[in-house]
């Protein structure tokens, strides 16, 4: 079976700083593929290379069978891209923004109206299509940009942090639309995100990227299995690590001051015993592994939320259109 995207050893350095450090990817037709990692991990850089927005320093990739280094024009005609920042003209209506895009991507004049109606319906914006974009909410704007990305019927759609800066309700709403695109249009979707829940609920497969490298790649369910047990977090005054290490069902112990993160087989059965030996406990919490634990497991650090939030404010600062 041919892959929609096949990347080999992609590297990208900016002024000697390695942003992407050897990425290999094979993405199947029709899947929703997630690139998960903190800001600065190299997600957007990877996406930009695949979409031919920037050239790789080393390595190469085929997108829809076209070489990103030598056939950039063909690649661009066969993909859709939804950018991190708003990229529509506020003074134009939603429909006019679609019209511009259709013309720029060489959609046949005879099909333009039909295709615009079609994608507007897909994202439920038919009713507001004649309103200027400046009256749209953040979620509506994203939906319009999703629709726009599909207008020229690309085989692959790249979404760069599609829900950045949206409130949780709007985010979940947007996932529904992304899933709909994937099933109704059978388009392959590559999405970057630093939201764990987004990757978990949206993606068929997830590649975890840290420091420009893929550290793990699998379905969310399998990734969670690879954590190797349930996660128990204990805050204790002076945890008795020696006693804990003797318990064989504890697979892994991480300490951060008084905060312990344990990977435990069948936590429900063993929690009582753990609590007995660990010492004076302030709080305890146990759960099935989430992607957050997966991330912790593979990178050794929490996803850097504070840093990631930065993108939101930058976006706010730049949100004024002409």
């Amino acid at each position: 079976m041919a892959y929609v995207i096949e990347a080999r050893g992609l590297h990208k350095s900016f002024n000697g700083v390695k942003a992407v450090n050897g990425i290999d990817l094979r993405i199947n037709e029709g899947e929703i593929f997630g690139l998960l990692g903190p800001n600065g991990a190299g997600k957007t850089t990877t996406l930009s290379m695949l979409a031919t927005l920037i050239k790789p320093t080393k390595g190469s990739a085929l997108v829809n069978g076209f070489d990103i280094r030598t056939q950039a024009h063909r690649v661009r005609g066969s993909i859709g891209f939804v950018f991190q920042d708003p990229s529509s003209d506020d003074l134009l209506t939603g429909r006019e923004n679609l019209y511009l895009h259709a013309l720029m991507y060489g959609v046949d004049m005879r099909d333009i109206n039909r295709k615009m109606d079609d994608v507007l319906k897909l994202v439920d914006l038919t009713g507001v299509q004649h309103r200027r974009m400046k009256t749209y909410s953040g979620g509506m704007r994203r939906r319009l940009e999703l629709a726009r990305g599909l207008l020229h019927e690309p085989k692959v759609l790249f979404l760069d942090e599609p829900t950045l800066g949206l409130d949780p309700q709007t985010r979940e709403h947007l996932w529904k639309y992304i899933k709909r695109l994937s099933t109704e249009k059978r388009v392959t979707i590559i999405v970057t995100t630093h939201y764990m829940d987004e990757a978990d609920l949206l993606c068929d497969r997830v590649a975890i990227i840290d420091h420009g490298k893929i550290v793990a790649l699998d379905t969310p369910a399998n990734l969670k299995k690879r954590v190797g047990g349930d996660v128990v977090r204990i805050s204790a005054r002076s945890p008795n690590l020696r006693a804990l290490r003797k318990l064989r069902y504890i697979k892994k112990i991480k300490t951060d001051g008084g905060l312990l993160t344990l990977t435990v087989d069948e936590a429900e059965r063993h929690l009582q015993e753990i609590l007995k030996v660990v010492g004076e406990v302030r709080s305890v919490e146990s759960h099935f592994p989430t992607l957050n634990d997966v991330f912790l497991h593979f990178t050794g650090s929490e996803i850097r939320e504070t840093e990631a939030e930065g993108g939101y404010f930058e976006r706010m600062m730049h949100s004024g259109n002409r």
């Binding site: 979409a51 661009r76 005609g77 920042d85 720029m104």
Partner: peptide, 20 residues
Amino acid sequence: LYIIMDRRVDFLKEVLVAPL
């Protein structure tokens, strides 16, 4: 000046990425 304004949002990217 408007080209700088287009760059401040991603509108310029949207145009530059088009197969034109």
